[in-house]
Each structure stands twice: as structure tokens, then as C-alpha cells.
């Protein structure tokens, strides 16, 4: 390539990249810098100044870090359940049904996302509440005598989170599983492997990049979710995002809220990093 051609292509490269960089700068970097700035300022209007107290508060006040630990723990559980449910679903879509049907199944998975999350959560509430649809049928069928409250507990909340996250797990899994050669599965079977062993030694190692990217997305989505824990978790489930909201909106303490927001970003990044380390993977491999 000639020198001028090189220059031109570099110019084109920057021209194409510029909107992306601009977008990142305006919508991601700048707000976070502002948040970082705010999180390091004193909350009191009368005594403005630099301070670390907002971060200190997180570690010194058990309610804050316990809420974070709880949120992260439940997000991990949600991710694990989503993975366990997503693997066979993805395998079924990618390998078992014929291609036409697998498209239809993907659309079915996508369908819940045509309505907003709020509507979806209210849908669950209509189903699960004491005077809800499921209780109605259980009563009618004589399976139970008194209606059961199925809402407002952690199990229901996790179910809601799993439901919301399913698609984000299944899509990357289907795409990696589609690239799995059927004969590998048959070969393992032929060499004496049981079903479980085939999953462990062939399908899961092959699907590793999809599993990792699915897990990262689901973990981050669950950790950052607000509506589902708030509405379905009911009275026991203080989610960390809710605490951030409370700091900003209820307590007017934007500085504290910013510190929490930053901590959420930092701690979740650490958790993802640790997860990658544990499974000996690199982020670049996952993304490719």
C-alpha cells in the first residue's frame, strides 16, 4: 500500500471511530467522572470540600456493605440458576430441534421482551398474588384450602430475575452450541461417556466462551436490576440499586449515592475479574 493510501485508510479509521469514541465519552466517561467527583465531595452544603467519608460510610456501616454482599450473592445465585436452566434449553434449540423450529423457539424466548420490564413484573404479580391466577386454579382444583402468598420472598424474586435474564444467557449459549460438531458428542458417547460426562467433558468446555459471556451479562443485569427485587422481593429484599436510589432520591445525599454507584461499578468488576481468573479465561477470548 502506498504512503498516501495508508494515510487515507487511517483517516477513514478515525472518522469511523469518532462517533463511537464521542458516544463513549459523552454518555459513559463524562457522567462517571462527574459521579467520581461528586462521590469525593462532602455531602454537606455548608462545608464543601474533598473527603473520603462517602466511601468510608460504605465499609463502616454494616447495612451498606451487607446489602451489597447480599445483592452480589443473589446475583451469583441467579446467574448460576440461569446457567443451569439455560444450558439444556440452548442445547435443545441449537442441536435437537430442526432449524425452522429453533428460530420459532428463539422468537418465543424473545417474546417477553416485547413488553417493558415493569409490565412483565406486574404480569408475574397477577399470577402469583394471593388472589392471583395460580391460587385461583389451585383452589378450584382442591389442591389447597387457603390461598398461598407466593410473592414477596427471595425465591420468587430470584425466579423473576432468572426469567428476566434467561434470554441473555440462552442467546450466547445457542450461538456457541451451534458451532459444536454433532459428531464430537457422538464420538464421546461411542467412547463410553455417559450423558453427564458428555456435558462435562465436551459440551461445556466447547461452550465456555458463551457461558462466560452469558454469565457476565446476567450477573451484571441482575446486580443492576431495580424493578424486580423491589416489586417481587417485597419486604425483605433490599437491593443495592435501591439503596443508591434511596440515597439520591429519598435522602438527597447525591454524594453518598455517587460513592455507592462507583462502588457498585468497582466491586462488580472485581467479581467478574475474579470469576474469569477462577475459570482461567481472558475477557478478550470471551468477547471474540
Amino acid at each position: 500500500m502506498s504512503a498516501s493510501g495508508m494515510k487515507q485508510s487511517r483517516l477513514a479509521f478515525w472518522l469511523f471511530l469518532a462517533p463511537v469514541l464521542g458516544w463513549l465519552l459523552l454518555l459513559i466517561v463524562l457522567p462517571h467522572l462527574d459521579m467520581l467527583y461528586m462521590s469525593l465531595r462532602s455531602g454537606s452544603f455548608s462545608h464543601p470540600g474533598w473527603t473520603l467519608t462517602n466511601y468510608q460510610a460504605f465499609f463502616e456501616e454494616p447495612i451498606y456493605w451487607l446489602t451489597f454482599a447480599r445483592t452480589a450473592g443473589y446475583a451469583v445465585i441467579t446467574t448460576a440458576i440461569t446457567l443451569v436452566l439455560g444450558l439444556p434449553v440452548a442445547f435443545y434449540i441449537a442441536k435437537v430441534v430442526r432449524p425452522g423450529l429453533s428460530g420459532a423457539l428463539m422468537v418465543l424466548l424473545l417474546l417477553p421482551f416485547w413488553v417493558s420490564e415493569l409490565v412483565r413484573v406486574y404480569g408475574w404479580m397477577i399470577l402469583l398474588r394471593e388472589s392471583g391466577v395460580i391460587n385461583f386454579f389451585l383452589l378450584r382444583l382442591g389442591i389447597i384450602d387457603t390461598p398461598i402468598e407466593m410473592l414477596y420472598n427471595d425465591a420468587t424474586m430470584i425466579m423473576g430475575l432468572v426469567y428476566t435474564s434467561m434470554l441473555f444467557m440462552v442467546v450466547p449459549l445457542v450461538s456457541v452450541m451451534e458451532s459444536l460438531d454433532d459428531s464430537l458428542v457422538e464420538a464421546a458417547y461411542d467412547l463410553g461417556a455417559s450423558r453427564l460426562c458428555i456435558w462435562r467433558t465436551i459440551i461445556i468446555p466447547h461452550s465456555k466462551p458463551g457461558i462466560t459471556s452469558g454469565c457476565i451479562v446476567v450477573f451484571m443485569l441482575s446486580l443492576g436490576n431495580y424493578l424486580t427485587p423491589n416489586l417481587m422481593g417485597g419486604k425483605n429484599s433490599l437491593w443495592f440499586t435501591e439503596q443508591i436510589y434511596n440515597q439520591f432520591i429519598a435522602s438527597f445525599n447525591w454524594n453518598q449515592g455517587s460513592a455507592f454507584g462507583f462502588l457498585l461499578l468497582a466491586l462488580s468488576s472485581v467479581i467478574v475479574w475474579a470469576g474469569l481468573k477462577l475459570t482461567r479465561q481472558k475477557l478478550g477470548e470471551v468477547a471474540s
Partner: peptide, 14 residues
């Protein structure tokens, strides 16, 4: 309001 907010968080988390 800040005190109240923290107290309410504690109740919800308990």
C-alpha cells in the same frame, strides 16, 4: 431525612 432514609433501609434489609 438522611437519618430516616438510613433507618428505613435497615428495616427493609432486616
Amino acid at each position: 431525612e438522611a437519618l430516616e432514609g438510613k433507618m428505613l433501609d435497615k428495616v427493609k434489609a432486616a
